[in-house]
C-alpha cells in the first residue's frame, strides 16, 4: 500500500537532508510504527506520504498513486491525524466533522458516531476552541476516520490523552487494522508502538536505522534478564541474571538448587532501550 524507494528530502534543497535515502514498504492491513526522537524526520516523512511536501528525490507510491503527481482522488483513500490539533476553533466539533465530511467524494462516516467513538458526544455542539488539548486531539483523530480510509496516517494519536483514552485509541486502531486498513503510525511513544505495531522503523537523523517487528528488534538488540527473589538466612534477596551470559545461566541454576526461591520474573529489553542502543539517542529530545 505504501512504497518508498531511496527517498531524500531537504527543506533548503541542499545537501542538508531531513530524510536521507529512506526505503521501506507497508503491506495492506499492516501497522508500521515510525519511531524516532523530535527532529529525526518522522513528520517530514508523513508530510511527503500525505502530499503536504513534494517528492524531491526518490520514489513514493501510496495506494497506487505516484506521489510526484498523486491526484486529488488519493485523498478519498487516506486519512491523516496530525500531531498538533488543527481544528476550526470557531466551529463546533460536530460542525468541524460535518464540514470535512462534505469535502470527500466517497461515502463518509456519521460525524456524531465518530464523536461518540472518541468520547466527545457531550461536547459535540461546543466550539472546538473551547476544547482541552486532549479533546482537540481526539477531534483530529475522529476527523481522520471520516472517509473510512484504507491508509491511515497517525501522528502521535495518543498525545495528551489519559490512560483510558490512550487504550481506547489503541483499540480503535486495532479494530481498523482488522478491517484491512493500513496504518502508518508516527510516534515517540514506545509503549503504544510496542502494543499495536506489526513492525517498527527506527528513524534517526533522517535515516532508517532498523526496521523489523518489535519482538525481533528486542531479540536482536535487547538483553533478556531473569530477576530472582530468594531467602538467604531468613532475609529476602534479589538477584538479576543475564540470559545471554553462560556464567549467569549457570549461577541461576545453582541458585535455584541451593536456595528457597520465592519469585522468578523474566524481563526483556523495552523498545526504548533498544532504540537507545541502536541510535545512541533517547526518544524524547
Amino acid at each position: 500500500m505504501i512504497k518508498v524507494r531511496d527517498l531524500y528530502f531537504s527543506y533548503g534543497r541542499d545537501k542538508n537532508y531531513a530524510v536521507s535515502g529512506v526505503s521501506f514498504e507497508v503491506e495492506k492491513g499492516e501497522i508500521l510504527g515510525f519511531l524516532g526522537p523530535n527532529g529525526a524526520g518522522k513528520s517530514t516523512m508523513q508530510k511527503i506520504l500525505t502530499g503536504l511536501l513534494p517528492v524531491q528525490q526518490g520514489e513514493v507510491t501510496v495506494a497506487g498513486h505516484d506521489m510526484r503527481r498523486p491526484g486529488r482522488d488519493l485523498f478519498n483513500k487516506i486519512g491523516v491525524s496530525f500531531e498538533i490539533a488543527n481544528n476550526y476553533h470557531k466551529l463546533s466539533g460536530l460542525e468541524n466533522l460535518a464540514f470535512f465530511a462534505s469535502m470527500y467524494e466517497v461515502p463518509t462516516a456519521d460525524p456524531m458516531a465518530l464523536l461518540r467513538m472518541v468520547g466527545l458526544e457531550d461536547a459535540a455542539t461546543r466550539r472546538a476552541g473551547a476544547y482541552s488539548k486532549g479533546m482537540s486531539q481526539r477531534l483530529v483523530f475522529a476527523r481522520s476516520m471520516l472517509n473510512r480510509p484504507t491508509i491511515w496516517f497517525l501522528d502521535e494519536p495518543t498525545s495528551g490523552q489519559d490512560p483510558a483514552m490512550t487504550q481506547r485509541v489503541k483499540e480503535i486502531v486495532l479494530e481498523e487494522r482488522e478491517r484491512g486498513v493500513t496504518v502508518f503510525l508516527t510516534t515517540h511513544n514506545m509503549q503504544v508502538a510496542e502494543d499495536i505495531c506489526d513492525r517498527v522503523a527506527f528513524i534517526n537523523e533522517g535515516k532508517i536505522v532498523d526496521l523489523d517487528t518489535p519482538r525481533n528488534l528486542k531479540l536482536r538488540y535487547g538483553e533478556q534478564f531473569v530477576i530472582v527473589e530468594y531467602r538467604d538466612a531468613g532475609q529476602l534477596k534479589k538477584q538479576i541474571f543475564s540470559m545471554g551470559a553462560d556464567k549467569d545461566r549457570a549461577a541461576l541454576a545453582a541458585l535455584v538448587g541451593e536456595r528457597p526461591v520465592e519469585t522468578i520474573h523474566s524481563q526483556e529489553a523495552t523498545l526504548e532501550e533498544v532504540f537507545i542502543k541502536v541510535t545512541g539517542r533517547a526518544l524524547r529530545g
Binding site: T50, G51, D73, F75, F82, N87, Y88, Y104
Partner: peptide, 14 residues
C-alpha cells in the same frame, strides 16, 4: 496559523 490549511489540503477538495 492554526494549521487548518493542512487539514484541508489532505482532502480531495482543491
Amino acid at each position: 496559523e492554526d494549521r487548518t490549511n493542512r487539514a484541508y489540503q489532505v482532502t480531495p477538495a482543491g
